[in-house]
């Protein structure tokens, strides 16, 4: 650890960064903060401190537990679809599988980029139109968005893998698919599983927001409660979401540690 010399270039970068920050801070309209008073905040906090426990379970199928389960279901099925469909995309876009025809890999990567480009919310809006409002629209939105995400990550792992076992299989006369099954798959499966689990975590978070546009899950009741300023209801739903996400993160974290 030595004291580094700061060059002129670094000073220039620092000055530019500070200018950008000041310019941004000056450009924002803070007028909405003026209307906010501490008593308002206090009222909200008071409401949030008294969760509506009656909403947790009432057997109607519209209660917190069933909606959370539905949200997890949306995330799981979405990620499962994405995992299954990301594999063919990965096979198309990994450049080390298409050494003779590099343009194929370029097409595959382009498909991934396009799929990733749209925000999940936009997919949700499209699919609400296609299959009607409901959880299935959420499943499709998450699925299609994550094909792009997982496809890209899978491709990166495939391109970065250790090729020695593949060469070994090819050297004893194994064909392309045998090399895939006996040399590539065993190396990549744990990483792919870990990535899919990680995206399941992300999907649970998105699934809880997709209800905003009518794509099912816990999002819709939460938005209604927020708009009605029913803080007791907001509080119990937020609590439910936070606990669910927290527990699932712990679970997937544990499984991912095992996979390593």
């Amino acid at each position: 650890m030595t004291k580094q010399k700061t060059s002129l270039q670094q000073w220039l970068i620092a000055a530019a960064v500070i200018l950008v920050i000041l310019f941004s801070a000056a450009g924002i309209d803070y007028s909405s903060l003026a209307a906010f008073t501490p008593s308002m905040g206090l009222e909200v906090l008071k409401g949030l401190m008294h969760p509506n426990w009656g909403f947790v379970y009432d057997g109607s199928g519209e209660d917190l537990l069933s909606l959370l389960l539905l949200t997890i279901g949306i995330a799981f099925l979405g990620t499962a679809i994405a995992t299954v469909l990301a594999i063919p995309i990965m096979l198309l876009s990994a450049s080390n599988l298409w050494k003779a025809h590099p343009w194929v890999a370029r097409i595959g990567k382009f498909v991934c980029n396009v799929l990733r480009a749209f925000p999940e919310l936009v997919y949700a809006i499209i699919f609400v139109r296609v299959v009607g409002p409901g959880p299935f629209a959420g499943v499709l939105a998450i699925g299609v968005h994550q094909i792009g995400m997982l496809g890209k990550l899978y491709t990166e792992e495939m391109e970065a893998m250790d090729e020695v076992p593949v060469e070994a299989v090819r050297a004893v006369g194994g064909n392309f698919w045998q090399a895939m099954l006996y040399a590539r798959a065993p190396q990549l499966m744990p990483i792919y599983s870990s990535l899919s689990l990680n995206h399941f975590e992300i999907a649970v978070r998105s699934a809880s927001t997709l209800g905003l546009v009518g794509a099912g899950g816990i999002g819709a009741p939460l938005i209604f409660a927020i708009q009605a300023r029913n803080w007791a209801q907001v509080s119990i739903i937020l609590l439910g979401v936070i606990i669910t996400v927290f527990l699932l993160d712990l679970l997937t974290g544990y499984i991912r540690k095992k996979l390593r």
């Binding site: 309209d29 007028s31 903060l33 905040g41 937020l238 936070i242 996400v245």
Partner: peptide
């Protein structure tokens, strides 16, 4: 920190919009 991280971005925005009001400052 873990608890703060679990709140999805858009839900946080919706909540802050309800508490503070519509506007760019809420987004910030």
């Amino acid at each position: 920190l873990d608890v703060i991280r679990t709140i999805p971005n858009l839900l946080l925005a919706a909540l802050l919009v309800a508490v503070i009001g519509i506007g760019e400052a809420t987004g910030v």
